[in-house]
């Protein structure tokens, strides 16, 4: 018995002329929370659906809990839980009935009350699915994925469309699952989600893994610190001679540097000499999002629409 929950070597998949997955290698340990990140069309969903047994692969070795998912064996499906992107439950059953229905498919289901409690739907247990809010329906999706008490849970973009409070709640829930010793394979568009939940992340771009490691290690590879401020009126020459200073027409400056202490010393010295303030000064460490954008950002065809505009606004909020 191996201690790997997922072992993928040289995974390939093509759709006609398009090579969607080009030789992916991935190992996920048992009880690990692993996140697969990538823009739309990078091969994320294809890869996950191959691991779940929903799609056939064209090449490579895949072992999930020791099974070949391509064979779709019943014993394999008894041990995994899948939460797809789409909802996919009968609208006219209640929460309780839905979970009970799915529990019946598995040999050793998790107790009904526990499942409902774990996803926080106890108050809605007699409510019909059609009357649940979007966030509640998504929780029910997770409940259905947990009904069979799986060892390995696939969560495909579990919080897309959630409001911020619902996302926090969902994260707490996923952390709770981790505490139960479940292996969790997550895909997400949200870098903060991956940073908070995942022990390790992989970034996939055009069907290839381009970065793999813990969020901390990946951020450490992004050695630069970002200094940002607004040049006050009448303070010309403030950034003269500073390498990497990017001055915008609106007088905002961004400096990406591996020597933040030295640069700040120089800048604050010059500001004091001139008797001005460095407007809206922020010093921010790189985030997982910066790492992500470094890997996928130079690929405008694939960059997801929401990633780019969020960059500046998020940084401003991080001072």
């Amino acid at each position: 018995m191996t201690d790997l929950a997922i072992d993928v070597r040289g995974l390939r998949k093509r759709y006609g002329d398009l090579e969607a997955v080009k030789g992916v290698n991935l190992q996920v340990a048992r009880a690990e929370v692993f996140a697969l990140l990538g823009p739309n069309g990078a091969g994320k969903t294809t890869a996950v659906e191959i691991l779940e047994g929903h799609r056939e692969r064209d090449g490579g070795e895949v072992r999930v809990l020791g099974f070949d998912p391509g064979r779709r064996e019943r014993a394999f499906k008894e041990r995994i839980g899948v939460v797809l992107q789409e909802t996919g439950v009968e609208p006219y059953l209640t929460v309780e009935e839905t979970v009970e229905l799915y529990r019946g498919y598995y040999p050793h289901p998790r107790p009904l009350d526990e499942v409902i409690d774990l996803v926080g739907l106890t108050e809605q247990r007699r409510t019909r699915v059609i009357k649940l809010s979007g966030g509640q329906q998504r929780r029910l999706d997770v409940a259905v994925g947990l009904a069979g008490d799986p060892e390995l849970l696939f969560l495909d973009e579990p919080t897309t469309g959630f409001d911020p409070a619902a996302r926090r709640d969902a994260w707490e829930m996923i952390k709770g699952l981790q505490a139960l010793g479940k292996t969790i394979f997550l895909t997400t568009h949200y870098m903060d989600e991956a940073e908070i939940l995942a022990g390790r992340v992989a970034i996939i771009r055009r069907g290839e893994i381009v970065a793999l490691g813990s969020p901390r290690d990946l951020i450490d590879t992004e050695a630069r610190t970002l200094i940002r401020f607004r040049i006050p009126p009448g303070a010309a020459g403030l950034v003269d001679g500073i390498e990497g200073a990017d001055v915008q027409p609106d007088a905002y400056v961004t400096i990406a540097t591996v020597d933040p202490t030295g640069i700040l010393h120089l800048l604050t010295g010059r500001a004091i000499d001139r008797g001005v303030e460095l407007g809206e000064l922020q010093v921010a460490r790189a985030s997982l999002e910066d790492v992500y954008l470094r890997y996928v950002g130079e690929d405008p065809a694939q960059e997801s629409a929401e990633a780019a505009p969020s960059r500046g606004s998020r940084r401003r909020g991080r001072s």
Binding site: E52, E78, L84, E86, G88, Y106, G148
Partner: peptide, 17 residues
């Protein structure tokens, strides 16, 4: 309807034959 809502796909992912 079940196919469109993803119910069939989800059923296919369970051990139920």
């Amino acid at each position: 309807f079940a196919r469109d809502r993803g119910v069939l796909k989800r059923m296919r992912g369970t051990p139920m034959p």
